[in-house]
Nucleic acid binder design. Structure first.
Length: 950
RNA sequence: GGGCUCGUAGCUCAGUUGGUUUAGAGCGCACGCCUGAUAAGCGUGAGGUCGGAAGUUCGAAUCUUCCCGGGCCCA
């Protein structure tokens, strides 16, 4: 490089900025967050928003266990987008993070770590360890959330184990008790043998297991055989007549009390030989083929009779295959009718054990059967079963029962069946259905004042909620329609006690007043006090006990609440108590929460306040791997969120979250997240170019009025207005991936490919204070200031970094996070020139394609070497002349454009320029050599150099 | 097995109430250029027949049915 060239380089206005090209996010983000913390930026934001209309996004509490994962990252980042956008559009948008702190997973972890010691420890002692454990993970997760750049009141989160929160739960509970919705029932529920507790639906994991599948003949009682003859299902001389049932849980046969048939479906007698004897089995007509196959009967080895409807079998009696005497105090061993009997599997006759199945229970209620469950908490048979079964574990006894049936001749067929079956999420053991006494919130009981049940109210109220996406409504309606009563009790230590007292006569004390009294006590002393304090201390000396109760024989029950009940009260314990209007504006969680938190918040809120706790509910999907398969550690496709943050930095992860359509499954792996870096770099470099060329621009002094700006600069401002409108619309509708693609396209196409490339000649080569340069700087300043603010909710660190690198800002604020979202400039008609620009830009495309030809055959290297002749029709020529050929030259970054009017189609002829190259601006110009002082540069450059050196 | 839901270029997304002759964009990729945004920048180009099949229609990625493959929730 010659000295002369170097000399001209120094006469250029090259970009200068402290905003580095390399982001170094992993190093640079933490100090920025430290600075935010030091300034207490969240408090400043709230302060600035005080008095503005509230917008409340109420955080759903993650479980205080383990590190955060990609799901929680997506969830909290989406929430942060919303809160920040709302803040920047003039709302007071508080964000109070919360944690779900009680429950079985924590207790299990603690008890497992304790090992044998746990057996000797008291509940308060175990609870203390659980508290410590939960607190630890709250600290860990809180830190991890803040590392993502989430803003919120992390100093004062809501925690479900805080006494004030617990008191709130009990206040809600008191109200439900007062409305008569809470009652104790013996009912089959999912029971974890491993954990010895009832399980909620949400605590079940479905896994495929192999179960026995057996066909069993239940002998018809002698007294009913005659009836069967009348019905034509048995013949004279028949002795071995049976009802054939099918089951996959042989252990529940001990609790069998009935056989269910469908009233309308048809049943038929099947005659065949078994073990040398003639036998008859009654089976469903539609299941005949399957039963025959199962029994291994070939054509000619059996015959069938005339079919009759199931309703005619009702009331017929049978003998239990291995239990001699009805163990219950109610009627048993008869045929009943039930609508849920299907012909999809089995025999059409359904083994019914009201103590061990939900449908069985319903049938039992209908026919007044006992809710018989001869199984203890530990999953072992009790004393009421035959001796050979007593004390045995029901989950291990299937084969023994099958063998017994085989020996006695009742077994028709045994097979194996693969099916999905619920398992306990903690112990991983198959769950059993077992009738126990549990506390329920009734969803079908009519409430006295409203005259409606919770279910009716819920189905009505969801119509007034905005569901995003809209199908959320259908989904939750389906769940509400089919959900059973809510079992809210658990038999564990780590939770909020259900405040029930029992007197010596076994009478229960549970009234609105008693619950409120307990609530006051626990609000002061925490829920540990339930286990340590006496009923008198808890209720208070002055509590007036109802008749029949005295403090002398009053005992406390030791059930705790389902954790879903606890989190389901957050709208009250958090939102209402903070003074936020309920319903709050938005709940935002994964789509699994339609059944979970959304539904289980809705029910208490309706019971207590008579209205839904949310105005809108937004849900997101789950992360899957690059093939769309769900992620799990065992499949090896699990993405560790902490590692990703450590590798790329929070802004990359946030940008990735913004880039995907969260309403569907979200494909995610390290590579996909890593690719977001490309987009990040492009956006960052766009900001950098803008910043670098505004180092000497003061909008107040140097700004150019819109009407005086160069056309292309006005175009850029028009494009910016479109961006403001479209991103605003996307943000408003929570369509963040549209915000992302709009910004990314704007940065790439409008800015980088077109505008910034075109601008370089003016910015670098024209005089620093020249009108031409100030014109584009005016546009660039606007673009920068706007882009940074639109980006702020997403790229929280990078936007802040750019903001502090800006010399002049639309708002004189230390942090971009205190700034407002840009608004469209009403004085600019940004659509008016669209048609003209479409034509100009497509002409430009044609020129560029023509130049590519010259480059391919090595005639030219850069576009500046070229002279372009456009042969075109009058109309096009007029357009170009009106636009200004000089402007079009700049637009194409060529040295010269000539027009030739012609009637035909537009033809672009590109040639190598015949002029000399200016050593300063690299354009080829006839004026090079004309200036005596600077013979190797063009006239424009010579003039500029002269002026700036004065 | 049931409810809800998804399946457009390698990736991330657009494709309005079915209809502007070759289904769009950006990225990535290939090739080329520049070296005054430089671990940057510019240009050109090649990639999908819309998960599959059948149907409705003058006409379907867009409506219907079935099938295949995912996801969430449940049984």
């Amino acid at each position: 490089m010659s000295d002369k060239k170097k000399g001209y380089r120094d006469t250029l206005n090259l970009p200068k900025t402290s905003f580095s090209m390399k982001a170094n996010l992993v190093q640079n983000e933490p100090p920025m967050r430290k600075e935010w913390a030091k300034q207490d930026i969240y408090a400043k934001i709230r302060e600035a928003g005080a008095g503005s209309p509230l917008y409340v996004l109420h955080d759903g509490p993650p479980y205080a266990n383990g590190d955060i994962h990609m799901g929680t990252v997506i969830n909290k980042v989406l929430k942060d987008f919303v809160v920040r956008y709302k803040t920047m559009t003039g709302f007071d948008a508080p964000f109070v993070p919360g944690w779900d702190c009680h429950g079985l997973p924590i207790e299990s972890k603690v008890v497992t770590e304790l090992g044998e010691k746990a057996r000797e420890m008291s509940k308060p002692e175990i609870r203390k360890l659980c508290h410590k454990y939960a607190s630890k993970y709250i600290r860990i997760q809180s830190k991890q959330f803040q590392q993502l750049g989430i803003f919120g009141d992390f100093a004062n989160p809501y925690l479900t184990f805080k006494p004030q929160y617990e008191a709130g739960i009990l206040e809600v509970f008191a109200e439900l008790v007062g409305k008569g919705l809470v009652r104790k029932q013996l009912k089959p529920i999912h029971w974890s043998v491993g954990c010895e507790t009832a399980l909620a639906e949400a605590e079940l994991e479905y896994k495929d297991i192999e179960s026995p599948s057996i066909y069993v003949n239940f002998p018809v009682a002698a007294e009913s055989v005659g009836k069967l003859k009348e019905l034509g299902l048995a013949e004279d001389g028949d002795t071995n007549v049976h009802f054939m049932i099918w089951t996959t849980t042989p252990w529940t046969l001990a609790a069998n009390l009935a056989i269910a048939v469908h009233p309308v479906l048809e049943y038929v007698s099947l005659r065949y030989n078994k073990d040398g004897k003639k036998v008859v089995s009654i089976v469903g007509t539609d299941r005949l083929e399957a039963v025959v196959a199962a029994a291994g009967l070939k054509e000619g080895e059996y015959r069938t009779g005339k079919p009759i409807r199931g309703q005619h079998l009702e009331g017929l009696r049978y003998v239990h295959p291995y239990i001699e005497k009805n163990p219950t105090d109610k009627d048993a061993y008869m045929v009943v009718c039930a609508q849920y009997v299907t012909t999809e599997d089995g025999t059409g006759l359904v083994h019914t054990a009201p103590g061990h199945g939900v449908e069985d229970y319903m049938t039992g209620q209908q026919y007044d059967l006992a809710i018989y469950s001869p199984v203890g908490d530990d999953g072992c048979y009790d004393e009421t079963v035959p001796e050979w079964l007593r004390g045995k574990k029901v989950l291990e006894v299937d084969q023994e029962i099958i063998d017994h049936l085989e020996t006695k001749g009742w077994l028709v067929k045994q097979e194996k069946l693969m099916h999905s079956y619920p398992h306990c999420w903690r112990s991983k053991i198959p769950v059993i259905f077992r009738a126990t006494e549990q506390w329920f919130v009734s969803v079908d009981k009519e409430m006295p004042e409203v005259g409606k049940s919770l279910r009716d109210m819920a189905l009505q109220s969801v119509k007034d909620v905005q569901w995003i996406p809209a199908w959320g409504q259908k989904r939750i309606e389906g769940m509400l329609e089919s959900r059973p009563d809510w079992c809210i009790s658990r038999q564990r230590s780590w939770g909020l006690p259900i405040p029930v007292f029992v007197n010596g006569k076994g009478q229960t004390l549970l009234t609105k007043e008693s619950v409120l009294a307990v609530s006051r006590h626990i609000g002061r002393k925490g829920s540990d006090s339930w286990f340590t304090d006496s009923p008198k201390e808890i209720l208070g000396d002055d509590f007036s006990l109802p008749e029949g109760f005295t403090f002398n024989d009053l005992k406390k029950e030791e059930n705790i609440f389902d954790v879903w009940f606890e989190s389901g009260c957050s709208w009250y314990s958090v939102a209402q108590k903070a003074g936020w209007p309920v319903p709050v504006d938005l709940y935002l969680e994964g789509s699994d929460q339609h059944r979970g938190w959304f539904q289980l918040s809705l029910l208490p809120a309706l019971g207590v306040a008579g209205k839904a706790p949310f105005k809108a509910v937004l849900t997101h999907g789950f992360t899957v791997d690059e093939k769309g398969i769900k992620q799990s550690k065992s499949l090896g496709n699990y993405v560790n969120a902490q590692e990703e943050v450590g590798r790329y930095g929070a802004d990359i992860l946030r940008l990735w979250v913004a880039s995907v359509n969260y309403q569907e499954d979200i494909r995610c792996n390290d590579e996909l997240i890593g690719r977001t870096q490309d987009a990040y770099r492009k956006i960052r470099n766009t900001l950098r170019f803008l910043l670098g060329n505004l180092y000497d621009f003061d909008p107040a002094k140097d700004g150019v009025a819109y009407s005086d700006m160069f056309e292309i600069d006005r175009w850029a401002v028009q494009q910016l207005q479109k961006l403001i409108v479209q991103t605003g619309d996307a943000y408003e509708n929570f369509v963040f991936h549209r915000v992302f693609s709009l910004i990314y396209n704007f940065s790439t196409v409008q800015m980088s490919n077109i505008y910034m490339d075109i601008l370089k000649d003016r910015l670098y080569c024209d005089g620093a204070p020249s009108m031409s340069r100030r014109s584009c700087q005016t546009a660039m300043q606007r673009i920068l200031d706007t882009l940074v603010r639109i980006l702020a909710p997403i790229l929280v660190h990078t936007a802040e970094e750019a903001w502090s690198a800006m010399k002049f800002k639309s708002q004189d604020l230390d942090s971009v996070h205190l700034a407002e979202m840009p608004r469209v400039d009403d004085s600019i008609d940004y659509k008016a020139e669209d048609q003209k620009w479409d034509k100009i830009m497509s002409l430009r495309d044609e020129v560029l394609r023509g130049l590519e030809g010259l480059r391919q055959d090595k005639t030219i290297a850069s576009n500046q070497e070229a002279t372009v002749t456009i042969r075109c029709a009058e109309e096009t020529a007029k357009l170009l002349e009106g636009f200004g050929l000089e402007q079009f030259v700049a637009l194409c970054i060529v040295s010269e454009v000539k027009l030739e009017k012609d009637a035909g189609e537009t033809v672009v002829i590109a040639e190598k320029s015949t002029h000399q190259k200016c050593q300063r601006c690299w354009n080829y110009s006839p004026t090079v050599g004309a200036d005596g002082e600077h013979p190797d540069i063009c006239a424009r450059c010579a003039e500029t150099v002269r002026q700036s050196s004065q």
